[in-house]
Design a protein around this nucleic acid. Structure first.
Lengths: 150, 150
DNA sequence: TCTTGAATATCAAGTATCTTGATAATACAG
DNA sequence: CTGTATTATCAAGATACTTGATATTCAAGA
């Protein structure tokens, strides 16, 4: 039970990262005058670019009704846009508006610059290891979420 | 601009991890009948064990008033407990109740088992690299959050 | 010491958001 | 085609959040 064992430390590091990235997006949301739900949704849309109300409902943990009104708010603010889904006429595709990106990017610029600096400290081989670990970890959590949702 | 370059992929991996871990805790929160705010707070408490209303307010992005009523809810459910802070008589320390851990741990058991399996795929040296990267990344985000909050 | 300004957390009133349950349109399986 | 499931929306009521005021304590300086 050695505390210096990397087999234990890596989980704590991942947890802290999760906490810190939530705090980061909350801080940006506050600057933009958005509530916690809405900035959470935008964060997701920045990563995925396209989504659907159903998927966003699962991500945010909201009911379908609350998701509708969240999307109403974000659409009125021109952050996102509802587009008909040609594959399924019941469904709606959600797209991030280009203006949304340009509203948010200024807040991310500093972080991105800092991250580029950080990258210099690691070799390609090392980054490949990190990516492989994080992706496996991420997939594992995804599987476990599906287990719980059953 | 090679897409297979690990220098690009690692950020996407970290982002996906952030998204997936949020969805994971939301799923657990739903099972426990907790709202999104409250499970977010408990997630933080599981990591930190002890905190304060002020710190939780910053993490959740809530105002102090909303933090008070969140803590009222969690205290009534016996997930947390308010304890006077001997170092500062204005302040209150928030402690996770042992019962809270035993309520939540069953939902984490499967994930923890899967993560132990995952660990076997990596050497100590590799995990040391991952930990170093994630910790640096995490600290960097923390710094950027402070910049925004100014 | 005494005073002033900042930081802690709480409370009450008003506002915003979320849940519930119902509805409509479409998809899909038998 | 028929019945059931899935998708998203809406309206009403319940819940949670923000704002602004308050009380207590701390920390720094006269």
């Amino acid at each position: 039970m050695n505390k210096d064992n990397p087999r234990h430390e890596v989980f704590g590091a991942m947890q802290s990262f999760g906490v810190n990235s939530v705090m980061f997006r909350n801080a940006i949301g506050k600057k933009l005058g958005l509530n916690i739900t809405d900035i959470g949704c935008l964060n997701y849309m920045l990563i995925k670019t396209k989504s659907t109300p159903g998927e966003l409902s699962r991500y945010t943990g909201l009911t379908s009704g609350a998701t509708t009104s969240m999307l109403d708010r974000l659409e009125k603010l021109r952050f996102i846009r509802r587009v008909p889904n040609p594959k399924d006429r019941r469904g709606t595709m959600i797209e991030l508006q280009p203006e949304a990106r340009s509203m948010i990017l200024p807040f991310l610029a500093g972080a991105q610059a800092a991250q580029q600096e950080l990258l210099k400290e690691f070799s390609d081989d090392e980054l490949e290891i990190v990516t492989r670990f994080v992706n496996s970890f991420s997939t594992s959590i995804q599987d476990q979420t599906d287990q719980i949702d059953l």
